[in-house]
Design a protein around this nucleic acid. Structure first.
Lengths: 113, 113
DNA sequence: TGACGCCATGTCAGATATGACATATGATCC
DNA sequence: GGATCATATGTCATATCTGACATGGCGTCA
């Protein structure tokens, strides 16, 4: 369901478990979104670090430039699976992903750019 | 595409980038699967630790017992999004997920079970 | 000015994932 | 034996995601 979850709850007239449960739900949603955004940023960083254009990356992923753009933009139509497998294809390790997920911030290049 | 990726490659007669690229692809696939399995195990652990049945968890997730079973079984029809959002709903933090993703092993309870 | 490369956004047909349901197995209790 | 609970597995209609395509904006170069 993904994005209809909230709607379904509301439509259900609140038989869910009330406020407490709702807070858990919305917090989980928020965290999930943040995680996806962190992966998005990570993807863009990796791509740039490898000197690739979105078109070139799309070729490697067997996808399209528009989808790459959406991935990097954190578009809601992009799944975590796609983000993760793209990152893996760019050479990211599980540890790298774990890092990205945690703080979202970088860690390798100190003096940014 | 998910599972048709390999097939598409083969059908394409290998215009992809050859062996090296293929290795990257299959390795990325393998890692992705391992990550999902790690999340599956993590989900089952959390559920049991909270003394919930699959049915009870399904209610919280607004899903069904069969889907929970598939999640825990590492069924290929289960997305990472679903696994992650389920874990979050069970109270897992991003740090917890990062841990699960990395080694896959546990870390809290030393004397296992 | 035009041409070109890079990225963003919208749309859509086809591919996948999802919840719901049915049904099966095993364990436990009476 | 039957009844009950927890879990596994298969199917299916519908919801969601995906790649492809079109298009527009923006900067650069000649």
């Amino acid at each position: 369901m993904r994005k209809s979850k909230r709607a379904r709850l509301e439509a259900a007239g609140w038989a869910v478990g009330s406020v407490k449960e709702f807070l858990r739900l919305s917090e989980a949603d928020a965290i999930l979104i943040e995680m996806k955004l962190a992966l998005s940023r990570s993807l863009r960083d990796r791509r740039k670090k490898q000197g690739l254009s979105q078109v070139q990356l799309a070729e490697r992923l067997q996808s399209s430039q528009s989808r790459v753009a959406k991935m990097e933009a954190g578009d809601p139509s992009v799944s975590m699976d796609l983000l993760v497998s793209s990152l893996l294809l760019l050479g990211a390790s599980p540890a790298d992903l774990a890092n990205a997920i945690r703080g979202g911030e970088k860690k390798t290049g100190p003096r940014a750019a």
